[in-house]
Nucleic acid binder design. Structure first.
Lengths: 320, 320
DNA sequence: CTGAAAGCGCTTACAG
DNA sequence: CTGAAAGCGCTTACAG
C-alpha cells in the first residue's frame, strides 16, 4: 500500500506538499499540484485515515446509543441521524444498550478513549457524576445536569391531546405510561394530563410504573381491572397502545365508541383495522435527529450550544 | 489528558513496560505491574485508541451497509450483527445506502482508507471490478465473484411453500417479486416456483421486474389485471404481500378462501386481522447476522473462509 | 523482567 | 510556493 512518502518521492516533492494537495489547500503551484496528482494516480494512493486521526486527534465518528435499534422509533432516528452526520463527513456507530447500563458505560469509555468523537444518547439511566457535560454528548428526551438535550414538546402536545378527549365528551380518562428512572421529558405527558383533568374537574387516574420493554401488558390489565367504565385513555407510547388494543379486542370494548384512545408516538402502532380510530401525537423524529446532530457537532467544535432544544410535536386526530 | 509517557514517568518505568501492563501481557513482575497500575489510577490515564489503531493498522470497526436501516429486516439484522461484533470487541458503523450506489462506493473507499476494518453488505448492485474479494467484505444474500456470502436456503424453503400451495388445491398460482440487477439468491425463489409448477403441470405465471422500494403496488395491480382467477400467490417479500393484501381488501377477495398467499420474510407484514391467514417463510435473521460476522472476522484475521454459507429458512404455515 | 529506540502515516508550524 | 523536521500516542522487536 503506497503511503504519502512514496507519493512525495514519485512526484519529487516534499511530504508537506503532498499533504497540501491531498487537503485541497491553497498555496500550491498548479504545476506541482498536477505532478502530485499524477503520482497519486500512478501509485493508486489512498490516504490512510488512521494517520490522519492520530494527528488530528479526531476520527470523524460519532456514536448513537439507543435502547434497541430494532424498534421503529429508534431505527428511524438512526436513519436521519446517519443522514445528517454523513452530510457533515461523519460516520455513526450504532449501539443497542439493551437497557444494560454497562453497555452505556462501555460507550462512554470509548468516548474517553477517542474511539468516537461524540455520543448521541437515548437512555433511561442517570449520569450525574460522570462529568458527561465535559465531553461532546447530546441526550434525546432525557435531561442530566449540563448535558445538552433535544426533545419534542411533550407538555403542549399532551395538553392538546387531553383537551381533545375532554372535548369528545370523555369523563373518565386515564393516563398510562412507563416511568423512567431519571427526570425525563416524558414525565411532561403525565403532568399535562393532570393539568387538564384538574382544570375540568375530572378524576385523575394514573397508571405509571417503571417497566421494561415488553412488560406493558400487565400494566394495561391492571389499569382496566382497577378502573371500571373508562371512556378515554391517554397512552404514553405505542407499545402501551398496542396492549390497550389487545385488551379491547379480548373484552369487546369498541374503539372509539366505548373508549377513545390517544397514543403518543404513532410510529409502531399495529393499527390495522384501527387505523383512523386512534388519535396520536407524532414525534418529529426527523427533526429530533437532525437537531441532535447539529447540537453535537456544535459541542465537538467547541461552540456554545443551547442546553435545551425543543421541537414541536404534532397532534393528529382521526377523521370522524 | 495523561499519555503513556506520563504514566511511565510517574511509575518510574519505561514506555514498553506500561504498554505491557496495559495489554495484560505476561512477563512483568508483580511489583512493577502494581506500580504502573497505581500510576494509571493516579493520573486517571485512559489509553488513546487513535495511537493503538495507527500502530496496529486496525481500528476494530466494521461497517454494515444496508439499503435502509429503518426497515424491520435490516434493523433486526443490525441488532444481531452489533451484538455479535460487540462480543468480539468490534463496533459497527451503520450506513443506509438509500439504494444509491455512490453511498456504497463511499463505504468501500472508507474500507480502503482503513476507516473500517471490514464491511458486511446488503446490496442490489454489482461489484465485479472492485477487487472486493481482496478486502474483508461479506455479502448477505447477494453473490459476486469471490466475495464470501451468507444466505438462507431460498430454494428449498420456496419449494416447500409452493408445494404447500399445490397441496391446498391451488391450480393457478402466481409468483411475484422484485428483480435484482445482480445474480442473487433471491432468484432461487422464482426458480423454485417454476420447478414446482412444472412438476405438477401447472401454469407458470411470473410477475418479476426491477423495482424500487415502494413501487410494489403497480406490479401487484398488473399481476391481477393480467391474470383472472388466481387462487394462489407466492410473494417474494413482505412489501409485495402488503400490496396484495391491499388489493384483496379493495376487490373483495378473501384470503385465504379465494386466494392463498405465501410470503417470503414475514417480519414486516401488516398482518392485523390477516394474521394466521397468510403463510410465510421466515428468514433466519439472527443466524444470518451472526454467521456473517463470523465469516467477516475470519476474513479480517486472514483465515480461510467459505465462499458460501447457507442457513436453513423455515416455512411456517397458518393453522387451519 | 525491563528500557531505549524505531516506526505506524499523517499534518503542521517553521524557515526559507 | 516548498521542504525538512517534529510530533500525534501507541506497540514491538531488540538488546540487555
Amino acid at each position: 500500500m503506497a503511503k504519502i512518502q512514496d507519493v512525495a518521492r514519485c512526484a519529487g516533492v516534499g511530504l508537506g506538499t503532498v499533504s497540501r494537495v491531498l487537503n485541497n489547500e491553497k498555496g500550491v503551484s498548479e504545476e506541482t499540484r498536477a505532478n502530485v496528482l499524477k503520482a497519486i494516480e500512478m501509485l493508486n494512493y489512498k490516504r490512510n485515515s488512521l494517520g490522519v486521526s492520530l494527528r488530528k486527534n479526531k476520527n470523524m465518528i460519532v456514536a448513537l446509543l439507543v435502547p434497541i435499534i430494532d424498534h421503529p422509533f429508534f431505527s428511524k432516528l438512526a436513519y436521519f441521524i446517519e443522514d445528517e452526520l454523513d452530510k457533515n463527513g461523519y460516520s455513526v456507530i450504532v449501539s443497542s444498550s439493551q437497557s444494560r447500563q454497562s453497555k452505556e458505560y462501555a460507550m462512554i469509555e470509548k468516548l474517553k478513549r477517542k474511539d468516537v468523537d461524540g455520543i448521541i444518547f437515548v437512555t433511561h439511566y442517570d449520569y450525574k457524576d460522570e462529568e458527561l457535560s465535559k465531553f461532546p454528548v447530546v441526550s434525546i428526551d432525557r435531561h442530566f445536569d449540563d448535558v445538552p438535550f433535544v426533545t419534542s414538546d411533550n407538555f403542549d402536545s399532551s395538553v392538546k391531546a387531553c383537551e381533545w378527549l375532554v372535548g369528545k365528551g370523555c369523563e373518565k380518562i386515564a393516563y398510562i405510561g412507563g416511568k423512567t428512572l431519571v427526570e425525563s421529558e416524558v414525565m411532561e405527558r403525565e403532568r399535562a394530563y393532570r393539568t387538564v383533568m384538574e382544570k375540568h374537574g375530572l378524576p385523575v387516574i394514573v397508571k405509571s410504573e417503571v417497566i421494561k420493554h415488553g412488560e406493558e401488558g400487565p400494566l394495561v390489565e391492571a389499569l382496566f381491572e382497577e378502573n371500571d367504565g373508562l371512556d378515554g385513555v391517554f397512552a404514553s407510547g405505542d407499545a402501551m397502545t398496542n396492549m390497550i388494543i389487545s385488551h379491547c379486542e379480548k373484552n369487546n370494548i369498541n374503539i372509539p365508541e366505548d373508549l377513545k384512545v390517544v397514543s403518543y408516538d404513532g410510529v409502531e402502532m399495529k393499527t390495522g383495522e384501527l387505523k383512523n380510530k386512534i388519535a396520536f401525537i407524532a414525534q418529529p423524529i426527523e427533526q429530533l435527529a437532525r437537531e441532535s446532530v447539529k447540537v453535537l457537532l456544535g459541542k465537538i467544535n467547541n461552540e456554545k450550544v443551547a442546553l435545551r432544544t425543543q421541537i414541536a410535536a404534532s397532534f393528529l386526530k382521526y377523521e370522524d
